[in-house]
Simulated assay, not measured.
Amino acid sequence: LRLARPAEALPKGVVPVASIACAARFLSENPGRALLTTGSKELAPYTRVADFAERFFVRVLPLPGAITKCIDAGFSPSHVIGMQGPFTRELNEAMLRQVGAQWLVTKDSGTVGGTAEKLAAARDAGARCIVVTRPAEGGGALSLREVEDALLREFAR
Rank of each mutant, 00 (worst) to 15 (best):
L1R: 05
A9W: 14
L10P: 00
P11Y: 02
P11W: 00
G13E: 10
G13R: 12
V14S: 08
V14F: 04
V15S: 03
A18S: 11
S19E: 01
C22R: 15
A23R: 01
A23N: 03
A23F: 00
A24K: 02
A24F: 04
S28C: 14
E29I: 13
N30G: 00
N30C: 05
P31Y: 11
G32A: 04
L35W: 02
L36F: 08
T38E: 05
G39I: 03
S40E: 02
S40F: 02
K41W: 01
K41H: 07
L43N: 03
P45A: 09
Y46G: 05
V49W: 00
V49L: 05
A50N: 09
D51P: 13
F52E: 02
A53E: 10
P62R: 12
G65H: 11
A66H: 05
A66Y: 03
A66E: 03
I67V: 14
I71G: 13
I71F: 13
I71Q: 08
G74E: 08
F75C: 07
F75K: 04
S76P: 11
V80N: 00
V80Y: 00
V80D: 01
M83D: 03
Q84N: 06
P86Q: 10
F87K: 08
L91T: 09
A94H: 13
A94F: 13
M95S: 10
L96E: 00
G100P: 05
A101G: 12
Q102C: 14
Q102M: 14
W103R: 01
L104F: 07
V105N: 00
T111P: 01
V112N: 04
A120K: 05
A122M: 04
C129G: 03
C129S: 07
V131K: 03
V131P: 00
V132I: 14
R134L: 06
R134K: 12
P135W: 12
E137W: 12
A141G: 07
S143P: 04
R145E: 14
E146N: 07
E148V: 12
E148R: 15
A150V: 12
R153Y: 09
E154R: 15
E154A: 15
F155Y: 14
A156H: 14
R157E: 06
R157P: 11
